[in-house]
Nucleic acid binder design. Structure first.
Lengths: 224, 224, 224, 224
DNA sequence: TATGAATGAGGCTTCATTCAT
DNA sequence: TATGAATGAAGCCTCATTCAT
């Protein structure tokens, strides 16, 4: 479990060392401590096989404390999934949002950011867990998709639209094209990772190569 | 559960009506009856949330009987996953294996077969279930991948190699190209389906359009 | 717990010794076995302090079995209370219902039956348990009262009405008179027993004396 | 919970507003504040279903404070029960103790006081709670009975003895007669209230009528 | 051979009590 | 001194598995 994505919060001291007294369920450090433990357990076991006892042990807090911060197992899971979204997708859209003169370079940069994240150990685990409960908790997987992939797709589509308008690209259906491009970013990586066919995170070089090949394929076919 | 993929086996009579007496755990009809019930329950609940009682009820068999045919819940699940593979991937490689003179048409036919299956309700459920347990049962998801996507990829790569050798395509890395093509088959479909962003199975027309666009993009970029 | 009222059912053999196979939750012997254990625990601890584990142990069945026969702790309790009612009140109204020429003797016989039951160990425990939850489960205590005391009161009132009509008694409010008589049956017994001021069941002689005194007081005052 | 009997103590200011500093667990105002909260919770839930958290909230005191004033839940309950006794029975014996020339009037006055109290909402709740734990905490219910009913009975018996000696009453067993009279005070009221068959407190007029009828029945039968 | 009642470990959650602040 | 966050034992209930019928 050591390669799990590091906690977003790093206060430099444990909850109990911190000065002052916080209201019940209000200590963000302890809250994060629980979420980190839950992350380790949920991403290894999935929602249903994870036990609150496991989480208790992994988080290093007592059972009662977890229930001060989260009403029940499901709410803990939901909060964790929101954190997955934030951790995965926050701040990766810069490459697209900054005003780039060079389309190819912008797409490659964005593709690398995105592929790196979604093929990382943490990213794969998060996606597995969320896909695993998609049938029973559809709202959670929907919201994950909307916060993540969907937003990136919209930005890419807007970028493509701009270039179509400028005459540098010739694309009939830019929505479909955005989907194609986003899939080309991680061809041969994401699916194999999801199904456990690739045990280790892909090397940066491999990601760069895959993304570049995808972008070039895309641009070659769609150039005006 | 009514839209679940129908049983592959249809014996025309129930197990108990059949003549002759079979050794314990040897009646293939009863075995399939159990697998069908298990399929309905596992694909709706996932492995861990499914209960053997649910499966008992859904399959119309007694608990003891299930344990005659399968040693435990996990083995039942493994056998079911093997059936998923067979049901999903058996017989869809014909389009590639038959000697096709027209590459484009062959790819489109294969792409349609593949996309239709893996975006079907049954296909999505099977993938969700398997991805959901990939962390804990890596061998199962691996074998699913190998029987399914991997085989198709190998065939496609061989086809591409042939065309590269024949000079009709110019591809440096045909392995990567096969991955790209396989992803282009279901751009905008598979991921949205997996995350529950698309509730209904895509229409055949939508699949055809997506596959065709993917193949054309691919061929335009890689033509010699 | 040994002085607890004996089981109503006495099959002469334990559930597991009985021949034949009964459907889940359908074996009346096992059901009674559970109710007997529950009776011992609930009447000693009250509803809330009783634990299902205690009942499990006391009944000599496994936890799962209890939940086959009763959906949850509360339903087990409700069924037990209905059994309390039946055990306490079934068949004690004969003395009133049979056509008695001698009013005094009929009242004394009935009073003795009633007082004996409701001051018995089992009767006191049942009343304590039911009074203890009356605030939170009003329907249960209501139904207990209606099946028990209320019915006896109605019969007594009818008898008094008959004698008033016949001119042998002079009572203005026969409803109130019935209440008075029923309280006189156990003067100095019931309340002390309920509050634990009288540890042992009253002797038959003491009950007879109390009932007789009550009836005589009543008749002396109300004779025409 | 609004109809709960008001606190006996009314200091006119909250504990924290009061001047001076009291030793831990020594502030009678705070102590009463806790008992009031405990009363509301215990009388609604019973001892076992009541949680210390509920009491904390209802009393407006912190959990630590409760444990300064009371060693544990049971001791808090015991103290509360003693307060029930005091609240219910203190000062209702005047009607009997003052030198009354008119027996009938004295009995009616006392009966009304007594019946009003023990059929009041607070009185019923207190009795239910105490009866509910009588099996497990016999000393508590005993002491309740001794402080309450028993004392009244002794006074009534003494009064009856006096009148027997004076020749105005003809009673063989004055102890039994006192029990009878005390039960006649609340015929048709107490039991129905305890079992939840009478939701509202009886009207004063109804109490008066019941008591008067009881006393008259009693005196008619026992007059010399 | 097929059945399903029974088992009991283990799941989620609550709550009396403690103790650092 | 008063607070309330933290603890962890124990509560109710479920469920994979067994075995007598």
């Amino acid at each position: 479990m050591s390669s799990t994505k590091a906690s977003v919060v790093d206060p430099g001291m444990t909850a109990s060392e911190r000065p002052g007294r916080l209201a019940a369920g209000q200590d963000p450090v302890k809250r994060q401590q629980i979420l980190d433990g839950a992350n380790r357990v949920f991403s290894q076991m999935g929602f249903d096989a994870a036990s609150m006892n496991d989480i208790t042990r992994e988080a290093g807090v007592s059972k009662g404390t977890i229930y001060v911060y989260f009403n029940n197992k499901e709410e803990l899971f939901i909060d964790l999934c929101q954190q997955y979204k934030a951790a995965l997708f926050d701040g990766i859209y810069q490459a697209l949002e900054s005003n780039n003169s060079d389309l190819r370079e912008a797409l490659i940069q964005f593709g690398i950011s995105l592929s790196t994240l979604i093929t990382s150990n943490a990213g794969i685990r998060a996606q597995r867990v969320i896909i695993g409960v998609a049938e029973r908790m559809p709202s959670m997987s929907s919201s994950f998709y909307e916060k993540g992939p969907k937003k990136g797709l919209a930005l890419m589509r807007a970028l493509l639209d701009k270039h179509v308008a400028a005459g540098s690209l010739a694309i009939e259906d830019t929505e479909l094209a955005a989907y194609q491009l986003s899939d080309l970013f991680h061809s041969g990586l994401l699916r194999r990772r999801l199904f456990g066919q690739m045990e280790l995170e892909p090397e940066p070089e491999q990601i760069r190569k895959t993304v570049t090949a995808g972008v070039d394929l895309f641009l070659k076919a769609y150039k005006a």
